[in-house]
Nucleic acid binder design. Structure first.
Lengths: 339, 339
DNA sequence: TCTTGCGATTAGAGCGCTCTAATACGAAGA
DNA sequence: TCTTCGTATTAGAGCGCTCTAATCGCAAGA
């Protein structure tokens, strides 16, 4: 359990530790036969460089930390996969921290990464206070995905969520719906913009009187509760736009429980276009966030700052698109809804 | 971006670095007024201990690494949540490594954690060679969840997957099914045991002639393909037992596409009892793995080894249970299936 | 008053590595 | 043969912390 050190490798190979260091880092100016001797000695001893000591001396970990808040939301899993890919291509490895749905949890994850001195931090769907992000940015390079911030030291990558919400509303209005309710994402990342987009789109369609927002929390349970409340109203909406796929699925469940047929009786539109929405069995109409672009841009920004030393902040906004599937349809006639 | 060090805190507080170290580690024998002075100085400077240096000196990181292979499978997310909880209670923080569905990816994640000198490693649903796990165990404490191993240095926590598979088969046989097919999990963790359990249960029911295993890979797509193949057979099964929920959902989709009603025409049973299965909209009959127990036991074993120095290996096996929902029903009569 | 003992504090070595500056060694040019 | 120059190698300081052993103060007992 006690690890061999560089010194031992050096002794075995009959060279200095400095030479071993050069070999381990793959530096060019080492003679072939010594390089081979060192590698062999390392192999025989089962030597494994100690990143901690290495970083302590070099101030680099070649590692970036990704902080998530909800491992259950497939959207995040999909973004992480892409980040992984892009980071690997850039010669960085990634470690994931889990916020466990709470601000405190996310702060702890961030703190852990800072203590490990990661070279960069990607906050995905962060819910911590702006000040906390700013403080993190004092200590390492920070890129935020799915949320905006004014800090000059932080880059952001976002989907145009206002537009995304508008696409959803436009789609439903185009199908003849007027009473379109919105289940929001509470204080979650992107929720405010989606709410805003929903409201302004409703307004543009002169439907502000029919607009109604019920609080959700980006979770299935939250969507279920919100939809249940909506469906026991005296005036049940003919369509629901949920702030993400997870809550849309909750709404789907609630509609089913209420004996309503989707989409004959009520249309439901989600947001994210996760694998969940894609399942035939769900076939959820939703708004696509181009997560490969989000992830790629995030890593690009990060590497620019780490490797190229860029210091002015950049904010990318990517365009969402509507994916019409089977949970939205032309508004049911009044007769049918009367019963 | 350059971090304040302990020395600076010490100077500002007018004490030695050793005293600062004591305060930062929360040691008891420090006078209150000095403690307060140090904390204040640290706060003013925005001091944050450097885990790297700390570990270099103390050989501990107070961090455990969890290696996953598939962030998309909700089962893993749920296990990680529990591990997180248990680790936090024990004073450890957790970092997650993602194997990205590949052996190479998992090896890299393990290697990263070893280089970071985590105090312990939990491998969940690992797919690497036994030798690789063994080698990791040479360097840190390793607990494996969802897979067995003979290594004396590694503890394991498993669900009795053979029993789990048997529960599924028993359930279906109890509903009158005979032609029960199995979509397996390929080389995935636990797949072999589930396959074994399925076969031996079929045998016990004298149904070995009706047994049929088609290869899957624990993914939705794999389940879809496997089920599609089954459904175009000349003799279509009346029930499918999938090796996990994800592939069961794929099978559900395939059945739907084939115009079959679930469960009237065909019953489908999954494995894991993930949130996915629980959704009303899915309402998948499945085998529950008690993931809170799995995670709790894993952390318990880990901490015993780390903190108490246990060195003989322990293997826990927990019991699964069947959760009957809406995708399994009494076998359809022949007339109906004839059409 | 002088010990004794204990809690509070500190000096300083060392953890395993990187990196700068210095040195060793040849080969090539004068 | 003596420089010169470029490549290969090394000594050693230092990264920021922990931890042992030593020291300091002070109250209590002799």
């Amino acid at each position: 359990m006690t690890h061999p050190t560089m010194r031992q490798v050096a002794e075995r190979a009959g060279v200095s530790t400095a030479l071993v260091s050069l070999v381990m880092r793959g530096e060019p100016n080492v003679s072939d036969h010594r390089r081979a001797r060192v590698l062999q000695a390392a192999d025989e001893l089962g030597y494994r460089p100690n990143v901690l000591a290495r970083n302590l001396a070099s101030h680099r970990t070649r590692t970036i930390g990704v902080v998530l808040n909800d491992l259950h939301n497939p959207f995040f899993a999909e973004v992480v996969d892409e980040i992984h890919r892009a980071a690997g291509a850039g010669g960085y490895r990634v470690l994931i921290g889990n916020g466990q749905h709470s601000t405190a949890g996310e702060l702890e994850a961030i703190e852990t990464f800072l203590q490990f001195r990661v070279d960069g931090l990607v906050l995905v769907g962060s819910v911590v206070a702006a000040g906390a992000m700013e403080q993190a940015a004092e200590n390492t390079v920070v890129v935020v995905v799915g949320r905006t911030t004014r800090s000059a030291k932080i880059d952001t990558v976002n989907t145009d969520d206002e537009l995304g919400a508008r696409l959803a509303v436009d789609h439903l209005v185009g199908l003849g719906h007027e009473r379109i309710a919105h289940i929001d994402g509470g204080r979650g990342a992107g929720a405010a913009a989606r709410r805003r987009g929903y409201l302004s789109a409703m307004r543009d369609h002169r439907l502000e009187a029919a607009a109604e927002t019920v609080p959700g929390d980006f979770s299935e349970g939250g969507g279920f509760d919100a939809a249940s409340a909506l469906l026991t109203h005296n005036s049940v909406p003919t369509a629901i736009f949920a702030a993400n796929d997870l809550s849309a699925v909750g709404a789907l469940d609630a509609a089913e429980d209420a004996g309503l047929d989707v989409p004959a009786d009520i249309s439901i539109v989600g947001y994210d276009n996760t694998a969940l929405a894609e399942m035939h069995h769900m076939s959820l109409t939703t708004v696509n966030q181009p997560r490969d672009d989000l992830a790629r841009l995030a890593m690009e920004l990060l590497l620019q700052r780490i490797d190229d030393g860029r210091s002015d902040s950049v904010h990318h906004v990517v365009a969402p698109s509507l994916v019409a599937r089977s949970t939205s349809a032309r508004r049911a006639d009044n007769l049918r809804r009367q019963r």
